[in-house]
Design a protein around this nucleic acid. Sequence first.
RNA 1: CGGGCCGGCGUAUGAUGGUAGUACGCCUGCUUUGGGAGCAGGUAGACCGAGUUCGACUCUCGGCGGCCCGACCA
Length: 412
Amino acid sequence: MRQSALFTKTRREAPADEVAKNAQLLIRAGYVHKEMAGVYSYLPLGLRVLKNIEQIIREEMNALGGQELVMTALQDKALWERTDRWDDEKVDSWFKIALKTGGETGLAITHEEPLTSIMTEHVSSYRDLPVMVYQFQTKFRNELRAKSGVMRGKEFLMKDLYSFARTDSEHQAQYDAAREAYKKIFKRLGIGERTYITFASGGVFSEFSEEFQTLSDAGEDTIFVDKEKKIAVNKEVMSDATLQKLGLTKEALVEKKVIEAGNIFHLGTRFSEALGLAYTDEQGKRHPVVMGSYGIGVTRMLGILAEVMSDEKGLAWPESVAPFKYHIVSLGQKGDEVSRAADALYADLTQKSIEVLYDDREARAGEKFADSDLIGIPYRIVVGKEALASGEYEVVARATGAVAKKTHGEIL
RNA sequence: CGGGCCGGCGUAUGAUGGUAGUACGCCUGCUUUGGGAGCAGGUAGACCGAGUUCGACUCUCGGCGGCCCGACCA
C-alpha cells in the first residue's frame, strides 16, 4: 500500500490521557483510535495486525479439529437465568439493554450458555462426540475500571473454543490437545519464550485452571516462575501445599509481573446439566456432556505484542503478525530517478503478493525514518541515491537494527 | 464500587478573576532534501448547565467525560 494513500497519520506526541505503553504507541502510530474509556477502534494498520493474529489462531484451532462458527452478541436472558448467571449479584459485568417489546437482553460476556444451547439441537448420541467448536467474537464487559490500554477494555475481540466430550478422560485428551495448540500459537506469535503455563484458581470444577502468562512489566498479575521446568504458579494460589502438589520448590521460583494471554478451563458438566446437553451411550443410557473452554483475547494479544515488542522509538512487530513485511522508504523527489526506482521495487513486490507499505510521501528523510521506526514493520528498504549508485538497497531489520545489503533481485 | 486528580485550537503545553499565548500539525510561497529542516504569511481552541461577580477559561455547585491508586477481573 502507498503510504500517501493511507488515511491515518502518525503523531509525535502520545495522548495525555494514556499511560499504557501499548495504547500510546498504537495511537501514535495510527493503529487504533480511542472511542471511550476501554473502547478502541481498529484502524487499517491495527486491523491488519488483528487479522494476522486471528489467522494464526484459526490455523491452530483448525489443526486441533475445531469447527468455526460465530455466535451473537445479543444474548437471551432466559438462557442465562437457567445457569444462574444473569443476576447482577452473580455476574456484575453485564451490559443489559431494554427491548422495545418490554423484555431485556444482554451483550455477551462469554458464550458457554448460547453454545451449549445450540449443541443440544445437534448432539444427542455418543456418535456425535467428541466435538470442538470455536469463534472469534466481540465480548462486552461492563468493567468498573478499564485500564492498561487495549489490554483490559469494555469491548474486546476474543477467540473462544469450547470442547464437548463423553467422558472425563475424553475431555482430558481434548484439554491436553488444546494446551498444545496454545503453545504453538504463542510460539508463532513470537512470545513462546516468555509465556508460561501458570497454575491458578480453578473455580468450582477443578483444583487448578491453567493460564498462559506472558512476562511483562505492564502486567497486572504476579506469578512465581520455575524457569527450568517452564511452569509457574499464580500468586493467588501460592502456598506450600500448592508447591508440594505441583512438585515445585520455593528456591527455584522467581517472582514476575505478567499479562494473561490465554486460559483453559475444565467446565465439567455444569453447563450441560443446566441446559440439558446430554448424549445417549451404546447402552441407551443418557449422560451429561463434559465440557471445557479455552480463551485467547485477540485485541489483548495485539496489546501484549505492542507492549513486549517495542522500544523507545516505537513498535517492532514480529513478522508473523506485522501489518506488512517490508516498508519501502523512498528518499526521492517526485519524478526523479530515485522515486522511479522505488516505484519499480514497489510494483515488483506487489506483483509477487509480498505485503509492502511504500512511503512515497513528499517528506524529509528524518521524518520518514522516524515514522518507519514508530510503525514497526519488520524490514525497511531504503531507496536513496546511495542505493542507486551501488545497486544495493539497505534492508534494515526493525527489531535488531541489523542491516543487510540486497539487490533488487535478491529482495524479490 | 471507595479514594484522589483532571477537562483549553487536530495534538502537546504555559499563564491568568480583565485582549486566550507557545510548539507541533494543517494551508500558501520561497529555500532545503539520508534521521522529525529554515524563513515569511495564514488557519484553528475554553465539555455542558446553573450560580457568585461590574466582569468567569479561571471561583462555587450539579451533570457529562477522562486518568490514577485500590477493589474487581469464568
